[in-house]
Write a protein that binds this DNA or RNA. Structure first.
Lengths: 212, 212
DNA sequence: CCCCGCGTTGACTGACGAGTCAATCCAGTG
DNA sequence: CACTGGATTGACTCGTCAGTCAACGCGGGG
């Protein structure tokens, strides 16, 4: 794939994937037909099966493609030295929120059809999803070691709360429960981190001693 | 419905609803047949359509039934005077977590198939879901007025973070990403509240003046 | 010029499953 | 006992798609 198409020709595979994003986001994975995707892509029905084995494989591809980018981003943020945990978490929040801002349909599909679909489909990707939590937990964990974050809240637990809060925000936007403006997006980044870190950081009055 | 069955006879409608919980939780709403529900209930296929208009109506009923109980619980907690916001939020967290503890399958169905299913189905219930956020926001808002919670984080925003964190926990249990023991459930109640409130309450050192 | 083979087409099939319905059961009623 | 009407049954219908496949287009290579 990739360079296999004739010069000048559009990458039909990509075209189909993009069409799928639109259609899945609009109608939902279960409530759309493969022909809807083909139509949206302006491509014959059969061609979809030339590039993909099944309808699910398309969703699969969309998820893995995007999720990997996020995992890489988190890993890179993890790797930064010197930077305070709060700032790292801000970067993670920014990345996710910006992902939604730039590709709302894709993020909607990933969240609604994969991340939150415990049955059948989501199961396959649990490992990938777990990786994301682990990456975030990593950030929290090092902050705990440094005594910046409370020791009695486990890193995994904190990571779930943090990610959960962000995903809930995205859901709020997806469901039109929250206003969607550039300011909202920008503001949300700081607010989630404030809300969560304020609860994770040891209180400003009496700093906890670094044990060991 | 209710008292319409013959004396001594089981309430088949209830039987079907309970069977649906089991089947929807196990196979997912989209990946099960109505006959699966009928079989699980030990009832003829057609009887399902005697009590319900469609497969979706069953899910509908399950959601509304349970969600209303939660809304009532939140409303009642709202109404409590004297009690600090932190304690009220603890009560909300307790209620939701206990709901999962006692009826994991039902909560799984509600979360996976309704709450998080933005397309088609969930849309119908947005208003109900929004009510829950509003109830929680109410608690946060009064705490803000009293100067206990930071004024720069809006109540709606805080409510979403709080609810999001809890739902993520349930997801963690549903997906088997988090250990499920009585201690975990109990501990989680305090930890979510700690994590979130710590970030919402003004810092212990210099209390913020009540403006206005 | 003719073939090879990938890319492309879209009509078709086959399965599946939601919802229907005519028939049966049975408790109560007069 | 005859009759009524809700509860119950499960075989059947009928639309809907996911996935198949035979054929066609066309660029390139010999």
């Amino acid at each position: 794939m990739g360079a296999s198409q004739r010069s000048g020709a559009v990458d039909k595979r990509r075209l189909i994937l993009d069409a799928a994003i639109t259609v899945f986001a609009r109608q939902g994975f279960h409530h759309c037909r493969v022909s809807d995707v083909a139509d949206e892509a302006g491509v014959a029905y059969g061609l979809v099966y030339h590039y993909f084995d099944s309808k699910e494989e398309i969703l699969n591809e969309l998820f893995l493609e995007r999720w990997q980018i996020m995992l890489d981003a988190i890993a890179e943020i993890d790797r930064l030295g010197e930077v305070p945990a709060r700032d790292k978490l801000y970067m993670v929040a920014s990345f996710i929120i910006d992902s939604y801002r730039h590709q709302p349909d894709l993020m909607k599909v990933i969240i609604v059809e994969v991340t939150r679909a415990a049955n059948s489909f989501g199961r396959i990707h649990l490992e990938k999803i777990r990786e994301a939590y682990a990456g975030i937990a990593e950030i929290v964990e090092s902050a705990r070691r440094e005594g910046v974050f409370k020791p009695d809240i486990s890193a995994e637990f904190a990571a779930m709360c943090f990610y959960g809060a962000i995903e809930q925000l995205l859901s709020g936007w997806i469901f039109d429960l929250l206003p969607q403006t550039e300011e909202q997006y920008e503001g949300a980044k700081g607010l989630v981190v404030d809300a969560i870190c304020g609860g994770l950081e040891v209180s400003k009055s009496g700093a906890q001693p670094v044990s060991g």
